[in-house]
C-alpha cells in the first residue's frame, strides 16, 4: 500500500452554524508533496492539524501510516501518530528557554530515549543540513525568523518522521528570508519525504508540488497537478483566488 494518508469524509466544526471541514476526502501517496491553498478561514490549518490529532474530527475517518483515527480514537493512537508525523508552525513555536541544540534534542532524548551524545550528533548533522550549525548554542530569540524556522524544521526532522506537515511556514518571515526556508523544504522533497504544505508561494508550488489542493469554506474545491492548477484551473473560485494572489 503506497498511500500514507487516506482521509474519508472528514467533518469538523467549531461552532454550530459553520463547518470548518465539510466532507473532505483525499489520499496522499508515499513521497508525494501536496500543497494546500485557499482563502483565509477556508479550513487549511484545521485540515492538516487533524493529521496529527491536534484537532479531533467530528465525523469521517483518517488512516495515517496505517493507523486509524476517528472521532472515538484514544490518546494512545494519537501519540503513536505524532511520533511518526512532524509538524512546523507558522510562528515557529521554538522553546525560548532552551538553546537551539536543546530544542532539537529534547524529543529524541525524552520521547525516543536516545542517549544524549547520539542525539546531539544527529542534531548537529541536521543543523548542517539546514545551514545553521553556527547557531547551535544560541537561544531562539537571538536568531532571525528564517533561521528560527529552519531550527523548527530540524526539530521536527530529529524524530525521523515519515510525514512532514507545514502550516504556512513562511508567512511570518520577511520577504528576503522566505527563500532560505523554502530551499530547505525543497531539499527535503528531493530526498523523497512525504510532505503536506499550506502555503501561498506560487513559484514554490509550481516547482516542488506534485499536486495542489484548493480549499474553500471547508470543502475541497479542486485537487490537480500544479501545471493544470496554475495555467487553467477548472473552477471559477480557484481562478478568482489565483487572480487575487498574483496581484
Amino acid at each position: 500500500m503506497s498511500q500514507t494518508i487516506i482521509a474519508k469524509s472528514l467533518v469538523k466544526s467549531f461552532s454550530q452554524n459553520k463547518l470548518a471541514l465539510n466532507d473532505v476526502s483525499l489520499e496522499v501517496q508515499k513521497g508525494e508533496v501536496l500543497v494546500i491553498m485557499g482563502p483565509s478561514g477556508s479550513g487549511k490549518s484545521t485540515l492538516i492539524r487533524t493529521f496529527n490529532g491536534l484537532e479531533r474530527i467530528d465525523k469521517g475517518e483518517l488512516n495515517i501510516l496505517g493507523l486509524r483515527l476517528n472521532s472515538f480514537s484514544n490518546d494512545e493512537i494519537i501519540k503513536k501518530i505524532r511520533k511518526r508525523v512532524g509538524m512546523v508552525f507558522q510562528q515557529f513555536n521554538l522553546f525560548p528557554h532552551l538553546t537551539v541544540l536543546s530544542n532539537i534534542t529534547l524529543a529524541p532524548i525524552q520521547v525516543q530515549n536516545k542517549d544524549k551524545k547520539h542525539a546531539e550528533k544527529s542534531a548537529y548533522e541536521l543543523l548542517v543540513q539546514m545551514g545553521i550549525e553556527e547557531h547551535a548554542f544560541k537561544y531562539p530569540k537571538q536568531l532571525s525568523g528564517g533561521e528560527q524556522q529552519r531550527v523548527a524544521i530540524a526539530r521536527a526532522l530529529a524524530l525521523n518522521p515519515e510525514i512532514m506537515l507545514f502550516d504556512e511556514p513562511t508567512s511570518a518571515l520577511d520577504p528576503e528570508r522566505v527563500n532560505e526556508v523554502l530551499d530547505a523544504i525543497k531539499s527535503l522533497a528531493k530526498k523523497g519525504m512525504t510532505m503536506i504544505i499550506v502555503t501561498h508561494e506560487i513559484e514554490f508550488a509550481k516547482e516542488a508540488a506534485d499536486r495542489v489542493l484548493f480549499m474553500d469554506e471547508g470543502r475541497v474545491v479542486e485537487i490537480t497537478t500544479p501545471e493544470i492548477f496554475f495555467t487553467n484551473a477548472k473552477n471559477e473560485r480557484s481562478r478568482r483566488f489565483l487572480n487575487q494572489l498574483s496581484k
Partner: peptide
C-alpha cells in the same frame, strides 16, 4: 498555548511537557 502544542507535536507526554516546557 502554542508552546504546549509544539511540545505535543513532538510526542512529549503531559508530565514531560510540564517538566521541560
Amino acid at each position: 498555548q502554542n508552546q504546549i502544542e509544539a511540545a505535543k507535536v513532538l510526542g512529549l507526554n503531559k508530565y514531560q511537557i510540564n517538566k521541560f516546557i
